[in-house]
């Protein structure tokens, strides 16, 4: 079985779960586990919440989509998840500038660990007060237009919009492979 792993990360409420649900052929799985971590005994149970979706498009070929937990808690799970990923999407809510700094932190965390193709997906662009793609790019630190990853405005609720985003990412992935 050949699998491509795609991580969908982003700020809280940006639409990670919705994004995966919109294209997954299976009901999205939330993974919860009982903690064996002695340091968290007080809590007894910890949740490793992660959305999982799948898109099988050939008998031996599938795209797996992993949604990272909403809260900014970077644990071992994250590390495993992104080190096994082939590409990732960072979803950013364009009408919540208060989250741009969190998005930068996520980017820094990812960049420190992996150098894989990625795409920035902007959601809520139709909301009042939403920032333009250009301005969000600058706010996220992508000042130079030439070295920016692809930016896509999308509606995570719409399957076609999500598929369009995936197409841009796959095309970008192929370009990156050609360059290397």
């Amino acid at each position: 079985m050949e699998i491509m792993r795609l991580v969908v990360t982003g700020t809280v409420g940006a639409g990670k779960s919705t994004f995966i649900r919109s294209v997954s052929e299976i009901a999205v799985v939330d993974t919860d586990r009982i903690s064996t971590d002695q340091t968290t005994e007080i809590k007894k149970k910890t949740t490793v919440a992660m959305d999982f979706g799948r898109l099988q498009f050939a008998p031996e070929m599938a795209l797996h989509l992993y949604g990272t937990p909403g809260q900014a808690r970077f644990d071992f799970m994250w590390d495993i998840l992104i080190r096994k990923a082939h590409a990732y999407i960072l979803l950013v809510d364009a009408h919540r500038p208060s989250d741009f700094r969190s998005a930068r932190k996520l980017l820094a965390f990812m960049k420190q660990r992996v150098d894989i193709p990625m795409l920035i997906g902007l959601t809520h662009r139709d909301c009042e007060g939403a920032w333009s793609e250009e301005n969000v790019a600058i706010a996220l630190g992508f000042v130079d237009e030439k070295t920016r990853p692809p930016f896509v405005s999308l509606n995570a609720n719409e399957k076609d919009s999500v598929i369009d985003t995936l197409i841009v990412l796959i095309e970008h992935y192929l370009n990156c492979v050609v360059k290397t």
């Binding site: 993974t31 999982f52 970077f74 495993i80 998840l81 820094a108």
Partner: peptide, 27 residues
């Protein structure tokens, strides 16, 4: 400079984390 979050010191085993990574295998 930029802020780089460090991983929290959870001592979950790698095997367990990898198990969680492949929930589809069970189905």
């Amino acid at each position: 400079v930029q802020e780089v979050p460090m991983m929290t010191a959870a001592s979950r085993s790698k095997a367990m984390a990898e198990d969680v990574l492949e929930p589809v295998a069970a189905g």
